[in-house]
Design a protein around this nucleic acid. Sequence first.
DNA 1: CCAATAACCTTTTTT
DNA 2: AGGTTATTGG
Length: 779
Amino acid sequence: MTKFDDLNSIQQEIVQNTEGAYLISAGAGSGKTRVLTNRVCYLIDKGVSPENILAITFTNKATKEMQERVTRMTDGKAFGLTIKTFHSFCAGILREFIYKFDGFDKNFSVYDDSNQKALLKKVINDLKVSDDIAKKCEYHISSAKNLGLDPDEYLKDNRYEPNIDTIVSVYREYQTQLKNNNALDFDDLLLKTLELFHDFPSILEYFQEKYKYIHVDEFQDTNLVQYKILYMLGIKYKNLFVVGDEDQCIYTWRGANITNIKMFIEDFKPKVYKLEQNYRSTKNIISRANLLIKNNISRIDKTLFTENDDGDEVSFKECYDEKEEAEYVANQVYILKSRGVDPREIGILMRISSLSRNIEEKLLNYNIPYVTSGIFKFFDRLEVKNVLAYLSMVVNPKDNANVIRIINVPKRGIGQTTIDKLESISRETGSPLTEIIENFRELDVSATIKNKIADFGNLIVKFNEEYKKKSMSDFAEFVINEAGLKDMYNSKSEEDLDRKLNIEQLISSIKDFEYENENATLIDYLESVTLQSSLEKKDDNEPSISISTIHASKGLEFDYVFLIGLEEGKFPLSRALDNADELEEERRLMYVGITRAKKKLYITRAKSRFLYGRREDTICSRFIEEMGIKVPKRQFGGFSSDYDDFVSNDYYSNNYKSNYNAHSNYSNGYSNNYGKSSFGNNLSKSNYSFDSSYSTKKQEFGGSSNNLNKLQSMNSKVSSSKKFDDFKVGVQVFHTKFGVGTIIKREDAEGNNYVSVDFGKIGVKTLSLNFAPLQILKK
DNA sequence: CCAATAACCTTTTTT
DNA sequence: AGGTTATTGG
Ligand SMILES: Nc1ncnc2c1ncn2[C@@H]1O[C@H](COP(=O)(O)OP(=O)(O)OP(=O)(O)O)[C@@H](O)[C@H]1O
């Protein structure tokens, strides 16, 4: 028996309409994903073979989630169902059929962003393109590819663009080198698939017959090439089921285009459904979201409503600086957790990932476990990329980029001059570098160099042999050991220990993959890694809160959401400020962030922020006022520190300066001699902008308790006052104004003693024991 | 010809 | 602050 979710009558009707084209244009949290999932199950329940069903999701995370849900709901009857992202769907097709294209074989590499950039840079170098033109190439190649235009077509469409000839020649050469390397970049996965369907009608027909029922989630973020693929696949049976929300289109910078929706309406004449009831969030959250998104001019008006409770008012907290912001967030999270909130229902979201660092440090401080997504890029780490390049070199020997990357890693005494020489031989003979290096005996170079190349060549030969014999994880370990990729990092420095840990982590990720995917090959692993870009976390970790970019939080939901860094220039980003379209996209992004919250939304900003090596005073984000949140008009400057919250949630209610010193003291490790006589006047650059010296360790996967210990020992160095000893964490107190509360935090600075008290409904107050009218009720 | 060091530049979001 | 490139020293 298929177990369907609860559905309202419209949702129900949508799910049971199985034939024909449908467009579900619906707001955030209205159940789009739920409807799509249930429809897939309904089809299976009705007897449609899962083999005939395709569901396209936006992220790998969403793929996994939907797969699990459908499997659970259908009692495992979903076997053979295809749920994939566009890119992995295309990659799968191309593994099978790329041999149809001259020069490619099934071992092709998929280039991620950094590989792509590296190749482009090399091409620019090869063609000796001047700097100013070079800067424009990336943009042009990417827009060409997003529109599905080859170099000639792009040239024709952009005849009047300055220097277009040079730009297009770079594009052309870039494609040539990709081909020589038997490699495809992300966009090529889509483009080559389209080309395949176009050039080989029998293959297209095969897939049209196979995927009689097609579903697409997050349709508003598809680009033209993706639409064309959908069109070709779906035009025969016209069973296309597409869901999306124009207000959540946040990937236009990657070519996403909502005119896809208009084209879909014209091409398929779908039945259109609108869902406007939100089942996720409280009334307060929804009304703020509605107020914000109304500020976008170029949008079809729709207003979300909900029958959920009013819930708590959205809270807005202006902090003094990024340290205090982090402290505030960590403290609030601590309170939520101590009230029994499931950590997995807490999310901290941000526009730019660089803001996460401070938050992570404070969370470590509080001993709050967290996972990050879209922030710590495991596969971008140099030591990890090096291992992958070695493996990729063996898998796809035609790819010169790998060889160039690792020929001198670890240092073998082979420098740029030698590499250039080898490369020119490769160009002239048309043989890949691996081949040339393996046949080092024929090289015309000095004896010393030849020896060095010989060592490397012999290594490659050995790898090629073992690759055939060993399992992929054994092979990876073999490569790491033989090439000395871990021995490179043998110093006792924290960085080196980290690097070695990452390499070990990589090995276990390969083992996991091996275990989870029977019959999978190293090719599959490498592909999944480039398509995922972040390390999948295992479930057996302790329940953690999430830190994420808003982009990466697409489609997710949390009971409690913190949106941090609401400052002009940061969110909205400065680049978007003078461009109406980009500004609207920022606003949509904010809208997505707000609508992730189910129960309560906390918004914060820092009045002064240290970022990119500079400290800057900030201006409150325009989105705050657009949401109808009143910002207290208080001048920045001096040490006045009472900033009222939108709700009465004044955190550091007393003099911030002394409080700040409290932080300085433990961040530093030992006390400084300011605080008494210099009260209120020494917030000079020097004692203000220092940073604690420990390195942040990301808790994306186990380990690194190291850091915690370090922080804990720092904490213990805080000088604790002998006075007010009874005001400990957990003690119940009475305040003349706020009533009964519980101490959740105690903090002592020179001469001042602070407690944070949770007064339940009233909120949390930080009070100075020296002044506050507090009495102990119960110890 | 290669490795280590010093100056320099650029900071968004991700399949 | 961090990564990349130009310069110098070996
Ligand atoms: N008919 C319903 N009854 C109760 N809960 C529902 C119903 N429909 C959806 N929900 C709940 O509402 C929340 C949002 O659903 P879902 O994630 O499918 O929305 P969505 O439209 O895809 O959201 P987004 O656009 O933000 O990705 C989920 O927690 C889901 O369980």
